Amino acid sequence: MNDYAGKTALVTGATSGIGRETATKLAAAGAHVIVSGRDLQRGESTVAAIRDAGGRADFVAGDLSDADSVRHLAARALELAGGRIDVLVNNAGIFPFGPTAETQESDIDAVAAVNIKAPFLLVAALAPGMASRGNGAIVNVTTMVASFGMSGMALYGSSKAALQLLTKAWAAEFGPSGVRVNAVSPGPTRTEGTAAMGEGLDQLAATTPAGRPGQAADVADAIVFLTSDAAQNIHGAVLPVDGGRIAV
């Protein structure tokens, strides 16, 4: 099912958490993975781990809050991948929480840049090449709070709601050319990034039927499935990986 031999994948936010798990799994399945992130040391560590396991990977540093850096990432990824990216995983995101009245304008701009603009620019740069070859897969990582309101998460949730709409719009735009665009919607997931939530993560997870936080590998498995040939007739879907929160 997950044979990625000869394929290349770009994964943003791939130096930790869900992104690192996804990059590792795609490489284990045979893909040449372009690992992207802001931290050079973590990027090199991720690439080294993949190579030590027999996979192929390269690191490209990128600041997704800067449009020129995003464009450079796309160009450099294409260069390292021999001119073609077959899989794009828009995983990187920032998630400041807090009351609306205390949200700074700079926070709004940063979240919009990383969570919406960067995926938009990457799809604009890479999806046409996939379409010209008649094959490709894109997965956007959203969140369960893109689908319902939660106090303190207006900015984060709305940015990911926009990404869910973009997922469907891009599926309609690029699907006829053989490019599948889907999303995964994680619930409370234990990663380096959510460690700062402390007991709040467990309390949020307690609202789900599973009753516990998920693991980064749970979400990565869903991403690998959606980019695989086993999902070849799935377009514009938002797959919940949220411990069943969608059911309540």
Rank of each mutant, 00 (worst) to 15 (best):
G55Y: 15
G55E: 14
G55K: 04
G55L: 09
G55V: 14
G55N: 13
G55H: 14
R56F: 05
A57R: 00
A57P: 00
A57H: 01
A57S: 06
A57M: 02
A57L: 04
D58N: 13
D58E: 08
D58L: 07
D58H: 09
D58W: 04
D58M: 05
D58G: 07
F59Q: 11
F59G: 10
F59W: 08
F59R: 06
V60D: 03
V60Y: 02
A61I: 07
A61H: 07
A61R: 08
A61K: 07
A61F: 05
A61W: 04
G62N: 14
G62R: 13
G62K: 10
G62T: 15
D63S: 10
D63H: 13
D63K: 05
D63L: 07
D63T: 10
S65T: 07
S65G: 12
S65Y: 05
D66S: 08
D66R: 12
D66N: 13
A67L: 05
D68A: 15
D68C: 08
D68T: 14
D68I: 01
D68Q: 14
S69P: 04
S69T: 08
S69N: 06
S69D: 12
S69H: 08
V70P: 01
V70K: 13
R71G: 05
R71A: 06
R71F: 02
H72R: 15
H72K: 13
H72V: 11
L73Y: 03
L73M: 04
L73F: 02
A74I: 01
A74S: 07
A74Y: 01
A75C: 05
R76G: 05
R76Q: 15
A77Q: 00
L78H: 04
L78M: 10
L78Y: 03
L78A: 13
L78S: 12
E79T: 11
L80D: 01
L80C: 07
A81Y: 02
A81H: 00
A81P: 01
A81C: 05
A81N: 02
A81F: 01
G82Q: 09
G82T: 12
G82N: 12
G82C: 08
G83S: 06
G83M: 08
G83T: 02
G83F: 02
G83Q: 04
R84A: 08
